[in-house]
């Protein structure tokens, strides 16, 4: 009942989410909600549970306890529901996870063809548009092995967009990319944000967070310890742990 009330107009409501791996509890009761078109940046030291949290939202890691309400519907742990949920939530991984046996174009068209049963021609036409959007039209027929990390990650973003997601999850999208190529990926993400995409981004890129985020959530040891506008969190952090983390990140 409360879930339904809370979810009015919300794209995502997470209530008291827990996740354990064996005896190790990585997320110890996290609650937050998101409006459509909101841009959320998740930060925190490694091991704080931020990656696990985004992976719980689309059940890549099934939560151990708690409730997730997506687009007004409580997510149940049934296979069919989970698949529908994942169709509507795009995910971008730290390691890209593009499909190495397929070209850039095929990578992007595969989801719509297999999952949504879109006609191949139509799916590939849209994939070409998405490639143009991420600035990789000239790479359509290349395989991931022939592309840089920045290019692979942009293909991965286009692959997620091809499913027309209502929410995009980015799990440290630039952490595995050479420094000089990071901006290629961030530029695409800023463009998405400008178009009104709802997104959760796990990142240490403070510049990106300041430019794009409506809200920054700071996690430590499996809990949200601070949350607010980028200005509040970055300029006036209330918690000592946030302060010490930010000083380290800013120095780096």
């Amino acid at each position: 009942m409360t879930g339904d009330m809370l979810s009015q107009g919300k794209v995502l409501v997470v209530e008291d989410l827990h996740k354990s791996f064996g005896s190790l509890e990585v997320i110890k009761g996290v609650s937050f909600d998101m409006d459509f078109k909101e841009r959320l940046v998740l930060m925190g030291p490694s091991g704080s549970g931020k990656s696990t949290l985004v992976r719980c939202i689309n059940w890549i890691e099934p939560p151990s306890a708690g409730r997730v309400t997506f687009d007004g519907k409580l997510v149940e742990s049934r296979k069919y529901d989970i698949r529908r949920l994942r169709e509507d939530i795009g995910m971008v991984f730290q390691q890209f996870n593009v499909f190495p046996h397929l070209t850039a174009l095929q990578n992007i068209a595969l989801g719509p063809i297999v999952v949504k049963k879109v006609d191949r021609k139509a799916a590939e036409a849209e994939a070409m548009e998405l490639l143009a959007k991420v600035g990789l039209s000239h790479r359509a027929d290349h395989k991931p092995g022939q592309m840089s990390g920045g290019e692979q990650q942009r293909v991965a973003i286009a692959r997620a967009l091809a499913m027309h997601p209502k929410l995009m999850l980015f799990d440290e999208p630039t952490s595995s990319i050479d420094v000089e190529l990071i901006h290629e990926v961030l530029d695409v993400m800023v463009k998405l944000a400008d178009e009104g995409m709802t997104m959760i981004v796990v990142t240490h890129e403070i510049g990106f967070a300041k430019e794009v985020a409506d809200r920054v959530i700071f996690m430590d040891q499996g809990l949200i310890i601070e949350s607010g506008s980028p200005c509040e969190v970055f300029e006036h952090p209330q918690q000592e742990r946030t302060q010490s983390f930010l000083s380290k990140v800013l120095l780096a």
């Binding site: 698949r83 994942r86 499909f99 999952v115 997620a160």
Partner: peptide
Amino acid sequence: IPKGQSEAAFSLGMSQAQ
């Protein structure tokens, strides 16, 4: 095959068989 490959496939909504 790295686990990330099936995770990426699942994240698109694919079933285990797909």
